[in-house]
Nucleic acid binder design. Sequence first.
DNA 1: TCCGATTGTTACGGAAGCGTTATAGTCATA
DNA 2: TATGACTATAACGCTTCCGTAACAATCGGA
Lengths: 116, 116
Amino acid sequence: MSVSLRPSEALALWHDVTLDLVREGGHDFSSRQITILLTIYLEQPPHTVRGLAAKLNVTKPVITRALDTMGALDLVTRRRDEKDMRNVIIQRTVKGALFVEKMGDVIVARAKELKR
Amino acid sequence: MSVSLRPSEALALWHDVTLDLVREGGHDFSSRQITILLTIYLEQPPHTVRGLAAKLNVTKPVITRALDTMGALDLVTRRRDEKDMRNVIIQRTVKGALFVEKMGDVIVARAKELKR
DNA sequence: TCCGATTGTTACGGAAGCGTTATAGTCATA
DNA sequence: TATGACTATAACGCTTCCGTAACAATCGGA
């Protein structure tokens, strides 16, 4: 029902994965940005600025800025909510899905190689 | 000899942990900063600016800046290498050790709660 | 039809990170 | 001892992000 890890293994995994992502040389995302991206791709839509801000316990401009950045990289898209024009619905993109998928592969690979 | 994870589980774990770290409200570190911190605390000393730069595949000023930031937060310290005064030896601090330890606990807890 | 509440964004001055380049200090060796 | 290699850092101009506050657009009920 769960994954059993010792703290030393957990930290080693985190280290190995982030090292891979850094060495890869792609964008250097912050924890906030990663969390936003994963929330959009893992949790049930629809996602709004307000919803993400509440979930992450940050202010709305933080979400707006992150969406600006990741939108420029084509990792997410925004559109107005037809039902309530105040809302903005955040949507996934092909590029974003590939990015997240690749990230999952890195974690899986590093977990498999983990010395216990 | 390894930890078996499916990609969806791996991503869920990553999401849950980063969400915890973000909601916690502490500093919003980048992947580079996290990697540097974990390398210092998990890998065998001594750690130098050059060594970290080579390992992470980034330039030395990137390391210097990260050490400035984390040093100001008392998560790491620097001292000159007595044997070779050109080198700077990066050292751990109590506060940094506690931070890393807490991070390990978060990962372990989230792994345990992971639905499979 | 107002009018308060709600949504997301923009504006602001400041802080921090970027890559590149220059620099100061130290070493090793010829 | 002079010189070239090597270390880490500082300086540069630029970009991004910060938190706070103001803002325009939209909703919904009085």
